[in-house]
Simulated scan of single mutants.
Amino acid sequence: MSLPPIDPTKTAAGIALDPQTLERVIPESKRPDGSVRKQIKIRPGFTPQEDVRRFRGTKQTQADANQLPKGHIIGWAPPPTSTASNSTGKALSKNAKKRAKKREKKEEEPVADNWEDDDEAPSPPAAPRESSHTTASSDNDGSALASKLDKLNVK
């Protein structure tokens, strides 16, 4: 494989666009003995072998685009910069919005405090009770709760 041209306006074969005539030419150059090579005109539509790109099918080009960068560790993902907007800036499709909501819901699930209870089946969440108590009875509930908490303290 050849190196890229030093002058970016030239192709790998040395073909450049002549600014005066706007034709593709190989510019004149000097030989090691000091003599000068003439400028060579290139026929329109001709592509030398050095300038022909290697053929890549659609699946190959897509695989190259999705290829991980060199040195990437599999399974590691950089922390997200923003969770509210997507990184591409395009509008999300209906299914992508659903997946994002599921992801957010999954992140919000509480983590169990006691990992020893993993063997047992998780209990269903308790339904909120509607209290028909007066404010005086709610104060009693608060004091009962406080007394229970005092019993739990390790001294």
Rank of each mutant, 00 (worst) to 15 (best):
V154R: 07
R53C: 11
K105Q: 08
W115P: 05
T9V: 05
P32T: 15
T135Q: 06
L149W: 15
A91Y: 03
P78A: 07
P32Y: 13
F55G: 05
Q39K: 15
E120F: 05
E50Q: 12
V25D: 14
Q60E: 15
S123G: 03
P8C: 02
R43E: 13
P48I: 07
F46H: 12
K106P: 02
P4N: 10
D141I: 00
E130W: 00
T21S: 14
I15Y: 01
L3I: 08
P79Y: 01
E120T: 14
T88I: 06
R37S: 13
A146Y: 12
S93G: 09
K90W: 09
T88A: 02
E104R: 03
P19W: 04
A65V: 13
P44A: 14
K98L: 10
S93C: 04
S82V: 00
P27N: 04
I73G: 05
V52Q: 14
K151E: 07
R103D: 06
L17D: 11
P5G: 01
S85C: 07
A63V: 02
A96I: 02
R43N: 11
L145D: 13
A96E: 12
R31V: 01
I74T: 09
G89P: 03
A96K: 06
P19A: 06
I26D: 02
R56H: 11
K41Y: 11
S132K: 15
D64F: 11
